[in-house]
Design a protein around this nucleic acid. Structure first.
Lengths: 244, 244
DNA sequence: AAATCGTATTGATGTGGATCAAAGGGCTCC
DNA sequence: GGAGCCCTTTGATCCACATCAATACGATTT
């Protein structure tokens, strides 16, 4: 027999005010009353199965998405088939900002595992952020953070060597897991070597070799997608000790 | 003898409502009354001489800047001295968005020629964009456009070969000159080969060689920084005809 | 008009990562 | 719980771009 628990109970359970990601997400810096207003705006949630698209390049832009559970990659594909992973996104991060400029999405967002997002209709977000100063400011910070992040990737792609890129990637992942309350030194990557390679501007074989080298040097223990960082300072040294 | 024309005359002359860049810039989509409100907000203008910084990484973030005249580059510098040019900006484009996220600038903005910017205090911009919906939306579009642009650069750096990168760069410059009412096929680059190389993730010699090759093939006529594009479809073909 | 210095071009050689190739390991899906 | 397939690792070779080096050009200064 089906449960008769009203839907509202579920909705309350998943509201921003109850969400343990709120410190990372759009509600950051809002007072409780404001968070409730935001709750009303977040119309629905959407589950996305592994390998499925949240949106595709060319789709009309209507909403941005906050990741409640799981993780995603975004990529751009050229006519000739070449593609570039432009980012990996984790819980509490916002997807879809690329679509604002032209009213349609300019990249693909694909779930790396079974995931769930909060759908935030963009018109209503703009409306509410005209009334709620702290929401407006937090939204601007999130967009700006994306720009700063992209500049970091440009630096990585434009002037780092393969092992530096992978070290930067691992340290970045570690830091983001830490913020989410997971271990800084032991985690599971949801993306393949090929996807890491695309993101870092390297071929998958090069990524694999760099992992092996790090393992030989005792910097990390690698078992497929399971990563244990053994020597964080050592990884940081690879990044900074560039003998130009 | 000095002129006694009141300062206000100059200020009116340089107001958003009178500016021929308004279709490219923050006032786009605003009605005349709204543009006047924006005028009041743009407190001052600042002249920046060639090679001087508009802001530096680490400077406190207080304002964003719209380029009235001239052009800029932005770059990021690592502790070990390596640097990466993250963009070139032309008239009507906005600088400083990187600073919103952390309240301080995260890159350097340097004038490529004697230039002038409109200073837009950010707190007041947020305030006004809470009242003026079209300004809010245009500002969001400008931030989003920056994100989309950065994704394009990531694609370029991550998966294109040297000549493809340079072709993409030239076509992009051409398109931006065109929008500003200049010739699509003949223009003057304000940046050095070294700066182009940094932006494209190449060494200056490689940039120079790619220019020479394009010239041999009759695609462009290059005379130092003066560029004449002779075969736009040919350049586009280099971009797309990637035989993977 | 000569001197200077930053910028650009071109050539010769070196190398990091790509490409090609093959085999082993672990998921996923019946 | 087994079959198939995707993912990963590792080795051998190749090549695009970096590096090193020398010269030439152009703008600015004197």
């Amino acid at each position: 027999m089906k449960s008769v628990v009203p839907v509202t109970v579920v909705e309350i359970k998943t509201a921003c005010s109850q969400c343990n990601l709120r410190e990372l997400c759009l509600p950051f810096g809002l007072d409780p009353g404001e968070v409730n207003q935001l709750d009303e705006l977040v119309g629905s949630r959407r589950k996305i199965k592994r390998q499925q698209h949240l949106y595709r390049s060319g789709d009309p832009f209507e909403a941005i998405y906050a990741i409640r559970a799981g993780s995603f990659k975004t990529d751009v594909i050229l006519e000739d088939g070449r593609d570039q992973v432009t980012g990996f996104q984790m819980t509490g991060e916002v997807l879809g900002l690329d679509g604002i400029s032209s009213e349609e999405h300019s990249c693909n967002a694909i779930a790396l595992e079974d995931s769930e997002v909060c759908v935030i209709p963009f018109g209503r977000l703009e409306e509410l952020s005209r009334q709620v100063e702290s929401l407006q400011h937090q939204f601007h910070k999130i967009m700006s953070r994306e720009i700063v992040r992209d500049h970091g990737v440009m630096m990585l792609l434009g002037s780092m060597r393969a092992e530096e890129r992978l070290a930067a990637f691992l340290l970045n992942m570690s830091q983001r897991f830490t913020v989410r309350g997971f271990s800084p030194s032991e985690f599971h990557l949801r993306m393949t070597r090929d996807e890491i390679g695309s993101y870092l501007g390297l071929k998958l074989e090069t990524v694999s070799r760099a992992f092996s080298r790090f393992q030989e040097e005792g910097l990390v223990a690698v078992q497929q997608k399971h990563i244990r960082i053994l020597d964080t300072p050592g990884l940081k040294r690879i990044l900074n000790h560039h003998t130009a």
